[in-house]
Amino acid sequence: MLLIHCPYCDDTLPELEFAYAGEAHIARPSDPSELSDEEWRDFLFIRSNARGVHAERWRHIHGCARYFNALRDTVSDKFLRTYKAGEPRPDTSVQEAVK
């Protein structure tokens, strides 16, 4: 069971309070009707499935209830960092260097 840092609570808490919510930084197009069928398909279904650092969404569902983003290494299962929804993806090369 992982410990996850909630950027809103600024607290590190058991995974049981959190729910996974898919890949991060896939914004809903502001006007979906402008997208071709292929573009809309990609938005709906195509995901990066990264081996290594993965930007993903979590919700502190049994806590402050906020959605937030995280960088997690899918190989080691370790969180590199978490950040609030709306913030840009942190530079992972820096993260790698820190490791």
């Binding site: 729910a19 914004a27 809903r28 969404r57 569902i61 906020r66 959605y67 929804a85 709306g86």
Partner: peptide, 13 residues
């Protein structure tokens, strides 16, 4: 509720 919160918090804050 989860789906509504998702759109509200992350798409239409």
């Amino acid at each position: 509720l989860n789906m509504m919160e998702d759109y509200l918090q992350t798409e239409w804050p």
